[in-house]
Design a protein around this nucleic acid. Structure first.
Lengths: 217, 217, 217, 217
DNA sequence: GATGAATGAGTGTTCATTCAT
DNA sequence: AATGAATGAACACTCATTCAT
């Protein structure tokens, strides 16, 4: 599975309408993120994206073969970032807790830097039935497989409970992380500042490892 | 906010005489659930729903004013079930843990009994941008408010940590529950049997209260 | 090869706009013939066809799945008529000259009765590169094969010269017939009355069998 | 009617110094012939032609004002060749049969030397409704007028039957010639070698003058 | 001369909704 | 109640043409 494709950089870019030629593609990409965030992929019209990007209708098709290709670009942008990190983590010799923390940080950093991308991940990539073709679903399964490997490592190293299936622990950790983010996305709560990110990350990790209860059951 | 509207129950009809009208409506409702589960709301065509229900095209409009009304019916079916339970829980004098367990059981029971409905909740109700009008979003906020009330109660009763915002704990618990379910839904894993449900429910509760770690931090 | 499909009757129909329900398809078919005759298949817009038929845009798609299907219907209408005749002829024990005469009459009768259909045959079916998919080309080859069988029969019965390939004689006869018609079509000359048809048919047959020259070479 | 316009000859350039401009134009012309042969004029995209010619997109518009101009160039290339011959023939004092033979040879020679051009004549020039504007149709009528003059001459000189309209005989001869070629074009049969050309030409002339029948009617 | 990015009008197709029967 | 023919607005995509460089 080719997971590293990165169609298009979305570097911060405050002058969208006076981009040099080479950045038009990025401008379209960013505009697409904003429009799709607001209306969902299927309701996003190519007209809207072109207008948002400040370019003509046909130019979208000059840079992206189709509306679906635009979605694929966003899709790949998300996954390539996440899998890039996870590959790095696998090569490192850090504790499972640090690995989970790194993944958590990645989600939160992305949400701060590119809220549209995370919004789209949460609403269009992660859950939308018509968007989730079997091929795309594979990315998810791969994500869960890799996360489960970390959890299993934790069980083997004696830092995570062995009386629960690694699969369940994975669902719980990933679900909590993604569900937490999703709640913020839906409530339209932006994420700003290091301290807020640190709070959320440590809350999630703390509860996952130590529990939210005061008395051990 | 009128939260108890129930367009169309699929429970066995309690009026003992045959109520054909209600049966046809229920058949359409069920067919809609199946079709929307498979294709997503916006990709589901009225034609498909009618064919799936075994009735004619126009009859859908006889029982449901529009495609959007059909979605509202599903939407309300889900929320009325959940809010019905939560209202009951608020009236009872049981521990927060038991309340969270009851909510968890509700999600799992529904997933076992009506997987389409939960699938639609996870993909179309809970996340789909174009479906989430401000009005519908209110149901979500209400759900979180009520869940947070239980969490807060737990903090006040000394069973949940007070060093974390109730809001965060709520996001973590609800996120984990919904994220767990979502992972099952996407992996197309059915839920069958009491023991599996008990395992999942106790895993989620256990980790939430006691943590997944073996050593206290 | 299924050659007998006949999508749609084009019985003469002078009240196009007040047809009974079952004739709407025929009205669209006829309108399509007129529009395609005038502008060619690729330049014919579905809008034009709908307006010409006096019905709404979408109804075209209710009766024909696509613009291409409309063309297929016309295509099949032409070939089913021609192959229907040729199958009859093959079953009969008449002379090759009579068979060729019957084919000739068929072309001329069709041109008189349904000039649009013949116009489309001449311009869109018989010659248009983009319309002539390999599959459609098969119909042509089949037509030539059957015509050649008649020519070969003539050679065997001693009424046609054997010093020329049957293939060449076939090309000459069919080419002359189709080319003659094509010249009339392009010159926009209608064909009216039995005597004109008889003149043309006998001229073609006479020249083919006896030559146009006064002195034998 | 200006019938001799020749946008772009592909004959080897007679100006001995290198005329790059003319070469590029000829390359575009030839590429257009190949592409239009394969896809038809309306389906041929300027992109395809540029790529086939190995030059950039915009350069096509540097040499030809528009796609329609390109077609006009091909159109004129065909007709100027044919009318050039026919003008020569009119000036000569040869028999009608020799004149018809010369025209026939011209068609066959062209088909051998430039099959694309003849293919386009047969499919796009000679029959395509949307291409045949009234102005372009005039070329056809002129061609038939000139052919008919030869036929009439033949009738007056006593070598062709007078019991048939010259118009009909013209349609038959031209139709047979064009229809024969068309059958070869559609069957994708190339024409190679003098003997094959001689066979076809003599077959057509022989049948036209003497008939294909063995017994005089 | 040469390039190819940029434009936008045009068109096939879909599908929710209406309504006569 | 039940049917499905009829409507037409909406939208993705194509591609000839222009023009700044």
């Amino acid at each position: 599975m080719s997971i590293n494709a990165c169609y298009c950089s979305t570097m911060p870019n405050s002058h969208l309408h006076i981009d040099a030629k080479r950045d038009v593609k990025a401008a379209i990409f960013d505009a697409a993120c904003r429009v799709i965030r607001g209306r969902g992929f299927h309701q996003a019209r190519v007209t809207d994206i072109a207008r948002e990007a400040g370019i003509s209708y046909g130019l979208v098709y000059h840079y992206f073969g189709s509306k679906a290709d635009l979605f694929d670009a966003i899709f790949n942008e998300w996954w390539s970032g996440l899998f890039g990190l996870m590959e790095e983590l696998e090569a490192q010799t850090i504790s499972p807790r640090e690995k989970l923390a790194a993944i958590l940080d990645h989600f939160l950093d992305e949400y701060e830097a590119r809220p549209e991308l995370v919004h789209i991940f949460v609403t269009e990539i992660s859950r939308s039935t018509p968007n989730l073709t079997p091929e795309r679903l594979e990315f998810f399964k791969e994500f869960f497989r890799r996360a489960e490997r970390i959890i299993t490592q934790g069980q083997q190293e004696g830092v995570l409970r062995k009386d629960m299936k690694a699969r369940y622990l994975t669902y719980i950790f990933v679900g909590a992380m993604e569900g937490f983010l999703s709640a913020m996305v839906l409530a339209n709560q932006p994420l700003k500042g290091k301290s807020q990110k640190r709070n959320i990350a440590s809350a999630l990790l703390d509860v996952f490892f130590n529990g939210a209860g005061l008395m051990r059951g």
